[in-house]
């Protein structure tokens, strides 16, 4: 803690870098997963190809991806873009499964009703399927976000890692306080991001958070629709 207070400027700078390195991949991964999920969710072949590819990407260790990407993309090995792209790939792979599962969990009856009252397929995807899958999607997004915040720090061993650089420099200088400061800051960031996503999800899905009181009166009033 002392270390953070004595080095506020450096901490702030590394935190900003860390946020940038973790949030951009989450957003990019989410957008990619949503597009893939909404477009291919109903096509079995495309879907199994995507899932297989996603789990293959996810098996590649992050450090391996950080060091291999430059030779594939032609970037410098110290380019932060490598970390951003690698983490975007992870987030997308992690989330595309979540998107598929979340879309699957939308009750068939509701989809049937939507089709029967006259939703076109695209409208239905966006106005019925998507909002109804927000609950499980948010849960998956929280895991992806927290994992990302912690994974960014691995980049420090190749010189790009936001707060992770406190680990490498603290280690080289045998300075545990600095490492502890990094761990604490990363935990705080992860926690804040987790709460933020949970909060936004709650605002977007009021029907999943009905007060038990209101629901109770509905069932207590039983059969009569009109009084």
């Amino acid at each position: 803690m002392n270390w953070i207070l004595n080095n506020t400027e450096q901490t702030w700078e590394l935190t900003r870098e860390h946020l940038y390195l973790s949030i951009i991949p989450i957003i990019a991964g989410l957008v990619a997963a949503l597009v893939l999920g909404l477009v291919f969710g109903n096509r079995r072949r495309a879907r199994s190809i995507i899932t297989t590819l996603a789990s293959a990407v996810f098996t590649i260790p992050s450090l391996a991806l950080f060091v291999v990407l430059p030779s594939i993309l032609g970037t410098q090995i110290l380019d932060p873009l490598n970390v951003v792209i690698a983490l975007s790939l992870y987030s997308a792979s992690l989330l595309v499964r979540t998107v598929f599962d979340a879309l699957d969990a939308v009750p068939a009856q509701v989809l049937n009703a939507a089709e029967a009252v006259g939703y076109s397929p695209i409208r239905r995807r966006l106005l019925i399927d998507l909002p109804l899958s927000l609950g499980p999607l948010a849960a998956g997004l929280r895991v992806a976000a927290v994992t990302n915040v912690s994974l960014v720090s691995v980049g420090a061993v190749i010189g790009i890692g936001g707060l992770g650089q406190l680990f490498t420099s603290g280690y080289q200088r045998s300075y545990p306080d600095q490492i502890l400061a990094g761990i604490i800051m990363i935990l705080i960031l992860a926690l804040l991001l987790d709460r933020l996503i949970a909060g936004i999800a709650r605002l977007l899905t009021p029907w999943l958070h009905l007060s038990t009181k209101e629901t109770a009166t509905a069932s207590a009033s039983g059969s009569e629709a009109k009084k």
Partner: peptide
């Protein structure tokens, strides 16, 4: 089909309501 359905009311078992609306 979409315009056809918009002109025909449909009532389902269990109501088939949209839970998020």
């Amino acid at each position: 089909p979409v315009s056809l359905r918009l002109g025909i009311g449909y009532v389902m078992q269990n109501g088939g309501l949209f839970p998020h609306r």
